[in-house]
Write a protein that binds this DNA or RNA. Structure first.
Length: 208
DNA sequence: CTCTGTATCCATATAAGTCC
DNA sequence: GGACTTATATGGATACAGAG
């Protein structure tokens, strides 16, 4: 789905076809999930923040001036939500306390490899993890990351470079894949359902 | 000393303009 | 239209400075 298609969907949603929003949510669930996890939130907390983000985005959708930039806009909201959540509670998560990585075994089963790679990424300091996940897993440009996170372009570059340096020793065998830190399909559906329910509820309250 | 951010240089990719 | 050149954007890497 391209930015152009996002814009079309947004147009339909604003024209009253609210259900199209579920398509956008399914598309960007994993992207938001990765951001939430990169900020050090637990799996469950990340899901809560994603839900808030999707609802917030829906409510503000009519104010989005450039619908083609929906993805970046959504990520910006997610990052803002993460900051707010961090301020609300200084969370200490299991990730931050993740034990040192086990040694790499090339013939490891796929699921083990995935788990191991995730743990390797999660062991990066948060500042580095965020830019790394946004760049390598979510595919943002350095400029976009700078804009979304509010740090300088130069700083993004250096954090990326250092993050890669830290991971280089252990990430020689595997390519980063779409599966890494993915938001699994059943949960994606469940979250989409909850958000749509919330949106329908809010809509009904406004129009009775 | 370590960590973090900035400045700078270099390489590569892409877009735009010009010429045949 | 295709080939070539130039300008600009982007990303990678390194050196250096300041804070703690």
């Amino acid at each position: 789905m391209t930015a152009e298609q996002d814009a079309e969907l947004i147009q339909q949603i604003l024209a009253g076809d609210r259900e199209q929003y579920a398509l956008l949510m399914r598309k960007y669930n994993t992207m938001l999930y990765r951001i939430g996890r990169a900020y050090g939130f637990t799996d469950a907390d990340t899901e809560d923040i994603m839900q808030e983000t999707f609802i917030q985005a829906y409510m503000q959708l009519h104010r989005l001036r450039r619908p083609r930039a929906f993805q970046k806009w959504l990520a910006t909201i997610m990052v803002r939500m993460c900051y707010q959540a961090q301020h609300r509670a200084r969370l200490t998560t299991s990730w931050e306390q993740a034990p040192a990585s086990s040694t790499f075994t090339p013939n490891m089963e796929n699921s083990d490899l995935k788990h191991w790679l995730e743990q390797a990424i999660l062991q990066l300091p948060q500042a580095y993890r965020i830019v790394f996940v946004m760049k390598e897993l979510n595919g943002y440009s350095i400029r976009q990351i700078a804009h979304i996170t509010g740090i300088s372009v130069i700083n993004v570059k250096v954090r990326l470079f250092r993050a890669r340096q830290m991971l280089r020793q252990i990430l020689t065998q595997a390519q980063v894949t779409d599966e890494l830190l993915a938001f699994e399909a059943p949960r994606c559906e469940a979250l989409a359902d909850r958000v749509m329910k919330a949106i329908r509820g809010a809509y009904q309250q406004l129009h009775v």
